[in-house]
Each structure stands twice: as C-alpha cells, then as structure tokens.
Simulated assay, not measured.
Amino acid sequence: MPSQPAATPAKASGSRPRRAQLSAPLILDAAALVVERDGPAALTLRKLGTELGVNHTAVLRHFSGKDQIVLGLAERVLEEALEGFEPQGEWDDAFAQLARRVRAAYLVHPGIASLVAARVSRSQAEFRGAELVLATFERAGFSGRDAAVLYRTVTDLTLALSAYEASVLVMDPAARAGDELAMQREYLLAPAQEFPHLAKAAPELAGISNDEIFESALSLVIDGIRFRRSGR
C-alpha cells in the first residue's frame, strides 16, 4: 500500500480545511505562510488553526502560545542566515559576511523579519550567532565589557537596518509607492531658499539603492571599530 503524503498547511484561505498530523515544524511552516502572505498582524492561533485544518487549541499541544511560535520563527530565520557559514579572512571581512547573511535572510522573509527583529529568541541559532560575533571581536583585540558592548551595538544596528528594509517590503503597496515617489517628486520641489542643502542633495536621493545604504552603514560600523581598535 503506498505511503500517505505528509500533511501540509492549507494553500488558500477559502479552501476547506484539511485535518493535519500536527508537529512543531508543521505549525511553524503554517505560521510563516500566514505572516508572509497576510502580514505579521494576521498571525493568531485561530488563523493557524484554520490554515492547518484543526481546532486552534491543538496548536497549544506543541507551543505554549503565540509568543513561542514567534520565537520559533525568529530561530528559523537565524538558522537560515547561519547555514553553512564559516568565517573567512580578517575580522572585518568575517563580520561583514555575517551581517550580509542576516540581511539576506530577513529580505527573503520580510514579514517574519518585521515581526521578530526586536526579539531575543534564546535559541541555539542565536547563541551560535553571538559566539561568531564575539569571536570576531576577540580577533580584533576586544574582550570583556568592550566586546560585549560592541556585540550589542553592531547586532542591534544590523538587525534594525535589515528590519527597517524588510518593513518597507510588507507595506501597503500604495503607501510604499507614494513614499518612493516622494523622493523623486516632492523632495525635488522643496524650496531651495528655505532648504538649500536639501535642494543640493535631492537629485541624488532617489537614486540611492538599499544595497548602497546597507554597505555604507556597514562600512561606518567597521571603520568605527577600527578607529577604536587603533586607540587601544
């Protein structure tokens, strides 16, 4: 007798719910689908139950509540960012590689990123990321409180900038288009007599890519660490 296919979350919200053999990974799959399809605010236990084709209380056999599911999603994104990562080169190259990986993972899952960026997942993936960053700073000559402060600073900045970029991707399309047009239209029309510096910069603002912004921020962080290192 052929084996039965594994249960999967319902693909369309209007389809008839299918009963699933629940597991923690399956619930996280469904949660990720809801967040990326319907937005971070749509994630509720009832919505998950509908997506999985079960009573929403069944989810509580695997997770204590919505917050634990959110932390599970945070761990998944970090696991994706760190998969196969081995630091290469000097400390500054290694840090830049890791920061770019985190950003890339966030942009693949922008809804999840905007939901979890400020959370502390206290997961193995998060511990591994912390270990990698702290080891990088030790190679740069920092230890103790100096290394701890740098770790908190650079990880918060990387996550904040990546989450900001991700939050733009999940905005209402009309609002997002309006904001993009503002750089091309309203900023160019700002009165030069009242805003002379803005008038000079306005023609350049619309042409700056998110990649350029992230790399500029990354360079500023690394240059700051180099400067602090030179004064030790």
Rank of each mutant, 00 (worst) to 15 (best):
R145A: 14
L22A: 05
V35S: 00
A10M: 08
Y187R: 10
R61Q: 14
A130G: 13
I27D: 05
G231C: 11
E131F: 10
L159P: 00
R145S: 12
L115P: 07
K47T: 15
E83L: 09
N210A: 10
T44M: 06
K200I: 15
P2S: 08
D179L: 15
S219H: 12
N210Y: 06
R229Y: 05
F63A: 02
V54C: 10
F214G: 00
G111F: 03
V116N: 02
D92H: 14
A190Q: 10
A192M: 04
E212K: 01
E90D: 14
A135K: 12
L198Y: 06
T57K: 09
L43Q: 04
A202V: 10
D211W: 03
L78F: 08
L188R: 11
L189I: 02
G53Q: 03
L28K: 00
P203W: 03
V168Q: 15
A125D: 08
S219F: 06
R176Y: 07
L220Q: 07
I112T: 15
A177P: 03
R232A: 12
M171R: 15
L82E: 04
A12G: 10
S230D: 05
S3N: 12
A104V: 02
I208D: 02
G89L: 11
V59A: 11
D146R: 12
L82Y: 02
A94M: 04
E180K: 11
A10H: 03
R122D: 15
S13K: 14
L205C: 06
L26W: 03
V34E: 05
Q193F: 08
R19I: 02
V70Q: 04
R18W: 05
F95S: 05
P5F: 07
T8D: 04
I225W: 06
S64N: 08
W91L: 08
G224T: 10
Q4K: 13
V34C: 06
P110V: 10
E165A: 14
A125I: 10
E215A: 06
L159Y: 13
V154L: 11
Q21V: 08
S123V: 07
G65F: 03
E186H: 13
S64D: 09
A201D: 04
P5T: 07
R46Q: 12
I222C: 07
F95C: 08
L22E: 01
R18N: 09
